[in-house]
Amino acid sequence: MDNPSLRRPAAPRHLVVKQAIDWLLRLRNNADNPRLRQQCETWRAAHHEHEQAWQRVQSLQQELHGNLRAVPAQVAFDTLENSAQRLGRRQALKLLGGVMLLGSAAWLGKEQLAWQQWNADFATATGERRGFQLPDGTRLELNTDSAADMDFTARQRLVRLSRGELMLTCGTDPQADSSRPLLVSTRHALFEGFDARFVVRLEDGCTRLSVTAGSVVIHSPHTADGASARVQAGQSYLVSATQAVPARPLDMDVGAWADGLIVTRNMRLADFIQEVGRYRPGYLGCADEIGDLRLSGVYRLEDTDKLLALVAQTLPVRLRYRTRWWVTLERLA
């Protein structure tokens, strides 16, 4: 008969392991911060599962100690995370060693950007999407690898997007006797929503605004009249440090990600793969010779490996996995 006292304790949930790894990396990069260390101890004491996850991650970290300091935090994070999910330790070391050979400066850049998220009011990891209800009833959706802050005062309702992409559905201001504008800011412009639903996305060198309902005013010195531009439902704009111009609609539903989907309309495979790559760590690419293939459909983001397998069934392409973090699509021979 099974003796409960002899059973192995249940493994901590993936989310809790991930939190433990987050704490480990934060403390590693802020070793002289006593407040942060106290916050970690408070988190560990909050639940026995927290302490269990912490001990497991600590044990693995000690084994990897010699290599961990030489590896960018995001790479170490991925290795620890997957090792904690019952990858053998030798396999974890092998994966870590393989990643170290990449020596990519891009990983270092990702590490620095990842740490910026820790001070954000709202943040998501790669592949994560989250929704938040703001105090005024506004609905905020954050896409993968994004960070935003909230600054609500008696005079304004402001959301600052510092990384990634958000969708905002305007709520009714409970302070009915005031006229607090609902604003989203990025490093390129200020966007004011009027009973609207809109998506703001930080891209290389610019911010993309896509309005799906209502209207949004862009406040930027680089609009056509030098003051502002009103964008209606169905329209998009690109705003940079030098200009604010109408943008061609994307070949996908701009807000479908909030429902965990990519909905494409005759989209180039290269563009599609670039989009999917935002939802998984590592490198995802396709050969130039197949980049102009087109696809349309509805694809679920919850499992990008299954998504890619479906693409390989739809188009004359094959998947090549060098590692979990290095995947390419090639022409089917």
Results as ranks from 00 to 15, higher is better:
72 P>T: 00
100 M>A: 09
98 G>R: 13
75 V>K: 07
90 R>D: 13
77 F>H: 10
58 Q>N: 07
79 T>I: 15
101 L>I: 13
62 Q>W: 02
81 E>A: 14
58 Q>D: 08
65 H>S: 12
57 V>H: 01
60 L>E: 00
96 L>S: 01
96 L>F: 01
75 V>Y: 03
63 E>S: 14
90 R>I: 09
77 F>C: 10
72 P>V: 01
96 L>V: 04
71 V>D: 01
60 L>C: 04
97 G>P: 03
78 D>L: 02
64 L>I: 07
102 L>K: 15
68 L>T: 06
80 L>T: 00
100 M>W: 01
73 A>V: 05
67 N>H: 13
59 S>M: 08
89 R>K: 11
59 S>I: 04
71 V>K: 05
81 E>D: 11
96 L>E: 02
81 E>N: 14
103 G>H: 03
79 T>A: 15
75 V>A: 13
91 Q>V: 01
72 P>L: 00
102 L>Y: 05
70 A>G: 13
89 R>S: 09
63 E>C: 11
61 Q>I: 08
89 R>T: 10
92 A>I: 04
88 G>I: 01
94 K>I: 07
60 L>A: 07
96 L>Y: 02
62 Q>S: 07
85 Q>M: 06
58 Q>I: 01
103 G>I: 03
88 G>N: 04
100 M>K: 11
81 E>T: 09
76 A>V: 03
74 Q>E: 14
65 H>F: 12
98 G>Y: 04
89 R>F: 11
69 R>I: 06
67 N>C: 12
70 A>V: 07
104 S>K: 06
97 G>I: 03
78 D>G: 03
70 A>C: 07
